[in-house]
Computed example of a mutant assay.
Amino acid sequence: MFIISLTYKVSLEDVERFIPEHNLFLDKYYSLGNFITSGRKEPRTGGAILANAASKQEIEEIIKEDPFYSHQIADYDIIEFIPSKYNEHFKIFIQNS
């Protein structure tokens, strides 16, 4: 599993222009089963995505499709972790990883 932390490097006005394209990107990877949850940081300095993938390299390839990446809207920090404890309702995501 991976935590993808996005940090904006442009104004929120510039971020807003790419939100529709970014949402299409998110929808694609939700439908493929890679993304589990996502949202913006508070305060609004970026966002975070919880993702499932076979490797960090796969996550890096996925990120390259994000309009926020291609238009240099955000920097990305990828944290890989192995879940060892989790809520029973979260089990379906752990079994698929």
Score class of each variant (00 low, 15 high):
64 K>C: 01
2 F>L: 06
56 K>Y: 00
68 F>N: 01
41 K>I: 01
68 F>V: 04
93 F>N: 14
36 I>G: 11
61 E>L: 11
14 D>W: 02
13 E>T: 13
66 D>L: 08
31 S>V: 04
25 F>T: 07
42 E>I: 14
87 N>K: 12
9 K>R: 14
45 T>E: 11
12 L>D: 13
41 K>M: 06
69 Y>C: 13
58 E>S: 06
88 E>I: 04
4 I>P: 07
72 Q>T: 06
20 P>W: 13
97 S>N: 13
63 I>F: 06
54 A>K: 15
9 K>G: 00
5 S>V: 11
32 L>M: 12
84 S>R: 14
37 T>Q: 10
26 L>Y: 01
38 S>L: 07
44 R>M: 12
31 S>E: 14
17 R>H: 12
4 I>K: 10
60 E>Y: 03
83 P>T: 08
48 A>L: 14
8 Y>V: 11
58 E>P: 02
57 Q>G: 00
56 K>S: 00
95 Q>F: 10
29 Y>R: 12
4 I>Q: 08
86 Y>P: 04
67 P>K: 04
47 G>F: 01
57 Q>P: 00
49 I>P: 03
59 I>W: 02
90 F>A: 06
73 I>Q: 11
80 E>L: 03
6 L>F: 03
4 I>S: 07
47 G>S: 06
45 T>K: 11
22 H>A: 10
17 R>D: 13
56 K>R: 15
37 T>N: 07
29 Y>K: 07
91 K>M: 05
20 P>T: 10
34 N>D: 13
42 E>G: 01
41 K>A: 00
25 F>I: 02
33 G>W: 12
76 Y>A: 12
24 L>K: 15
85 K>D: 09
24 L>H: 13
95 Q>S: 15
18 F>T: 10
44 R>L: 08
91 K>Q: 14
84 S>G: 13
43 P>T: 09
89 H>Y: 02
92 I>L: 05
79 I>F: 10
52 N>G: 00
54 A>T: 12
62 I>E: 04
2 F>M: 01
11 S>A: 14
90 F>D: 03
92 I>H: 05
53 A>C: 07
13 E>S: 07
4 I>G: 08
69 Y>T: 13
91 K>I: 11
83 P>M: 10
46 G>L: 01
9 K>I: 12
37 T>R: 08
64 K>M: 09
75 D>H: 11
2 F>G: 04
80 E>P: 02
52 N>E: 13
54 A>E: 12
2 F>N: 05
90 F>I: 11
66 D>E: 10
81 F>Q: 08
23 N>L: 15
30 Y>W: 08
91 K>N: 12
42 E>S: 02
